[in-house]
Each structure stands twice: as C-alpha cells, then as structure tokens.
Write a protein that binds this DNA or RNA. Structure first.
Lengths: 347, 347
DNA sequence: TTGTATGCGTTATCAC
DNA sequence: GTGATAACGCATACAA
C-alpha cells in the first residue's frame, strides 16, 4: 500500500536511501538507518517485488513442471527444490502437465511472460519445441527424471536401466525365469529404460523377455486415474501362459495396482507371485507385503537440480549441459522370494 | 527480449496500438491489426507480465499454502484450485509449511511482496497473526480444510465431526464397544473435530471414549515422517487393556501406519481388529484390506475454494465470510466387520 | 554518506 | 482509429 516514497518522506530522506536500507546496499549512517527503519515499521511498508523485478530484470522465481502433482515422487522432488530455492531467496511455481505436451507448452508460455528466472522440467517429450522456446527466450532449464536428446540441457535423474537390471537380477537369483514387466508410456524414457534394464538382465542370464509379458501403460501413467497397474496385471493374468512367477512394476502407482490385482485374484505375494518395483515412498510403506524396490533419491534429485539451475542462472548460459545420474538403492524386503515350483516351471 | 516498442517500430505504429491488439481493447483497423500481428510473429514477441502487472496492480497469481505438499489430499485440492485458476488466467504458487507457523508467516511475507491477488490457506493456527497480516495488506484469503475463529474469513472444508460420527456409528452398529481413536496434533481443528465426532457417537450409544484409547499425533501429522500412525497403534497395543476391537484413524497417513502396525503384530484386519479412516485417495486403494472410510471431496474443495477466492477478488473485500462445509461420503468396504467375541468383551 | 535523474515495459487518459 | 504523455514503484548510474 505505502510506497518507498512514503517511507522516504516520513523519514525525511530520499527514496534512494530507503532503498539502500532495504537492500543493505551502499553506505547508510546508523541514525539515518534507524529513522528509515522506524518509518518502515510505522507504515507497515512492504517493498513491491514487481517494481523491483521490472527494474532488476530478475524475478527470483523458478518454475517446477511435473507430469503428476499428486505423485509423492514428484512432490518429494518439489521439497528438495523448494528448500534450495528458499535458501537463495527464490520462490517456486509448481505446475502440472498430466503428460500433456499442450499443457506443457501453455505453461511455458505463461512462465516466460512472467519472466521466471529458470525452469525445472519433467518433459513430456524427448526433445524439440519446449527446449527451443526456452532457449529462444534465454530461460535456463534443468530436466528432471528423464533423458532428453539435447546435449546442451542440464539434467538430473536416476539410473532407470541399472535399477531395473538390479531388481531383475535379484529375481533371477531367487530362481525366477518368467518375469512380467509392467511399465508406463512408450514416449517416456523411464518407461523404456526400465524395460531395457529388465531385458538386459534376463539376456545376461540366457533368458528372454517375451512380448506377451510386457505391458506399456496407457495415457494415465502418472495421472489421476491410477488404475493402469491394476489393469495391466489383470491383463497378464488373463492372457499369459504359463503365468510369470514374478512381476516387475515400473513405478509406485503401478505397484499399487499390481498388488491389488493379485490380492483380488487370490494370489499371495510373494508365495504365489513375487513383486518388485521402482520407487519407495511413504505411501508404499502401508503395503503388505513390504515391497522390494529400487528406491530413487527423490529429495536429492530435486535438491541437486535446483542447485544446478541456480548455478546456471548465475553463470554461463551457453555452457555444455551437465548430466547428473543418481544411483538407485536396492532394498530387498518381503515381496520377493523363490518361486514355487510348478508343473510349468518343471517342464 | 523484444518489447512492445520494437513491435510498434516494426509495424510502423505506436506502442499503444500494439497494446490494443494484444489486449483486444479499443478500436484497431483490420490492416493495422494484421501488420502488428505479423510484427509480433516475426519478432517472437512475448509481453512482459511484470510491467503489465505493475501498471494494472493485479498479478493474476493465487497462492495455495498447505501443510504437507506430499499428501495426496492436498495435491488433489491443488488440482481443483489449478483448474479453476487456469480457466480464469490465473497462475498458482504452491507453498508448503510443514505445520510451522514460522514458515507460514515467512511465505505470507514473500507472497505479499510479490503482490499475489489472493491466498488459499490451510492455516497452522486457528486465528491471529496471519489473517491480520493479510487483511492489513488487503489480500483476500480463503481458508481450506480447517475451522478458524475469524467470522470474516471465507472457508471451505469437509465436515470432520459428522464424518467421524458416521464412521463410529458404523463400528458401533457392527457391535464394537471399545474403539481407539488415533488423530493428529491438538492444534488442528480436524484432529480435534474427528475425536469429538467419535466421542459423540459413543455417547449417543451410552458408551464412553476412555482417555487411554485416544492418541494425539506429534509434530509430524501430515509431514514427511509418516510414522505417527504406526507409533500410535503400537502404543495402544502395548498399553490398552483390554485391547480395543477397532481403530479409528483420523487421516490416510495414520491409517497406513495403523494397518502396518497391525500386520506386524500378526493381527488380521478386520478379523482381529477393524480399521476405519478418514480420506480416500489413490494410494489407499493398494491397501489390503480395502479400507472403510469417510471420503472427502478433495478436488471439489479446491475447486470451490478457488471460485470463492476469485469471487472475493472481483467483489466486495469486506463482505461477511462464506463458510462452505462439504459432506463426506461414507464408503463401507472390507476393513470393518463385527468384532470377535472375546473373554473381555463377554465380561 | 546521501541525493538526482532516468528508465525498466506496460497501459490509462486524453487529445487528435 | 491512432498517438503522445504520464505513471506504476523501484534501482542503476552518476553526481554531490
């Protein structure tokens, strides 16, 4: 309501001096500073960030664009981002695309208009328009969670392929030979990489991943309608012959659905069917049995990505991209065990 | 990068005319409009929202402040808010307090500096400082999820007391007489109201809620460390005598912990112990057994609150507060059944 | 140590 | 229909 001029008038100084007090910049004598601070207090003056931003050409706003704001994986990332941002005086705008490229483009447009200083993006596409747009407007970007084609873009993610490989090795070491793999959309690198990891692990043991045991989720991977895992598991039970002895779920939501479908079918986990999954999040801990997982350091991913973005904002906009790949953590719990020896397996 | 003047120059018109084209305000001849649009296209011009906001004194930004951004209840609310906001050209800043009044105050300060047009708040306190601050700066606010003392504040929430009452009635009708109630912090209205609802239901049936069967969660209700439900359930099993035959969990996270603690203790749900809970969210659906709940319309709460806030922004800032109380939905599933008749119960 | 002039990019107002 | 001017609130550059 009151402006810097009001404060200046009341303290009998110039607006510039008030600005110096507020920003702790330049020299201000102690008595003057006192008078100004008193005036600020009395008027309840709050600086107008808009004017400041217009002048300084920096908004101290970061945007975080994810594909599903209701997924704890992404909100945990958000916490990591938030903590780093706050420490540097930045605010975060949190946006949700639902895996829609149109939504993503729409958000970018708004964010560029709003002059955000940088963008953290879980991209719906592997390359192209979004990055061109951002570069055209000189908005630094860090890609989260997924691989992209652009070598100039910074990125922070977890090693999906290696995580899937390790989980699958674990199953194989327990004696599993037929493993179903339920994953997300084909357009998303994590979906594809996790299948690739499973396949490589099987091949390294002289096994194969037959097409009938692989399912790519539909549009709803990571979206509100989290029934894909359930549907895919039912689909496998309905059509695969013989049944697999274990199921690999490519993320937490899929795992939820799988466990639910197995319960419904009267199959015990891990007695009748082992289950392993990516992600390890609070909600998972309510599951019975407690899942064997490849855990991703979500908080750290957000944390590191925000640091990278702030560095980029402060530093060279044209430097080569920095690709950070975090290790997963293999956590073996109660959802995986040796397969029951069936007629089919003996054959 | 390029400004309205650049566009004006290229189109050989004044900046004002460009402004008219952008905003569809005032009269512009078709040929002029064409030239301007071409220039905009050629330059890749994007209007600077900051300048616009400074001039118009409206940012078209809403803030949504919740106590735990990782809780799907709140992110589902966020979706409701987001959808309404986007439809009206507003952006949303999503903030997380972790139930800390200091964080809340800190955010409000920043948001006021950033001139947000309105605030949606899940308050950490029942009244006081936050509302005074917002009113002093004429920032409209709508309170979410919780009751507050201030009659001038708009609010949107679900009927916690009635929901708890209904769930407890359900348990009583099944034959339960001893019911443990595990809830959140005492300072939060939903925690208290849910206990009150349970107590009233018991009293209406001539029963009591003994102190030894009530647990108030610690600081971490709705925070990252979601072990409170687990700890509280273990505490009840360790000290209550005789055991309750049912447990009421005041939110989804508490329910997770309860089910886990019961599994660990080798107790079957609902065979040995019935469980009912507030909230019904995607992650819950992975639970076994599928929970009996009082479901809150989280999306609708966010949706309605955002509408209310936009109305308030457009309308009378001093009108009396509007308190919207949504009904819960009682969903009876598999986690509740008649209690096993024990020695204690027969006594 | 403090003040003045100027401009950030846009739009309201009034004039033509 | 279109344009000139001023102003939003602040900070940069320079002067005193």
């Amino acid at each position: 309501m009151s402006t810097i001029s009001d404060v200046a008038e009341r303290a009998a100084v110039s607006a510039m001096t008030v600005s110096r007090v507020i920003n702790n910049s330049g020299y201000v004598s102690a008595p003057t500073r006192d008078r100004v601070e008193r005036a600020i207090e009395e008027l309840g003056y709050v600086p107008n960030a808009l004017a400041r931003q217009l002048r300084s050409k920096r908004t101290k706003i970061l945007a975080l664009i994810v594909s599903d704001i209701t997924n704890p994986f992404f909100t945990t990332i958000a916490r990591g981002v938030e903590d780093v941002a706050a420490r540097h005086g930045f605010s975060v705008m949190f946006c949700n695309t639902d895996e829609s490229a149109a939504e993503e483009a729409q958000y970018l447009q708004v964010l560029i208009e709003r002059q955000v200083d940088g963008v953290l993006l879980v991209p719906t596409r592997r390359g192209g328009a979004s990055f061109r747009t951002l570069r055209a407007h000189r908005v630094p970007v860090v890609v989260l969670d997924r691989r992209v084609n652009d070598p100039f873009v910074d990125s922070v993610r977890c090693d999906s392929e290696a995580g899937a490989y390790a989980l699958t090795r674990h199953l194989i070491s327990l004696g599993h030979r037929r493993i179903a793999v339920l994953t997300g959309r084909r357009t998303i690198s994590t979906s594809v990489d996790r299948v690739a990891g499973c396949r490589r692990a099987l091949q390294d043991s002289g096994l194969v991943l037959p097409g009938e045991l692989v399912r790519f989720g539909g549009y709803n991977f990571g979206s509100l309608n989290q029934t894909d895992g359930y549907e895919m598991a039912r689909s496998v039970l309905a059509s695969a012959s013989p049944w697999p002895t274990a199921i690999f779920a490519a993320n937490n939501f899929i795992a939820f659905g799988v466990v639910r479908a197995l319960h419904e079918a009267g199959l015990a986990v891990p007695g009748d069917m082992s289950v392993v999954a990516f992600d390890d999040l609070p909600a998972d801990w309510a599951m019975d049995p407690f899942l064997t997982v490849a855990a991703q350091p979500a908080y750290e991913i957000g944390h590191r990505a925000a640091e990278l973005l702030l560095d980029r904002i402060a530093g060279d906009p044209d430097a080569i991209g920095n690709a950070v790949v975090f290790p997963f953590e293999l956590i073996i719990r109660n959802s995986s065990s040796a397969p029951r020896v069936t007629e089919a397996a003996r054959a």
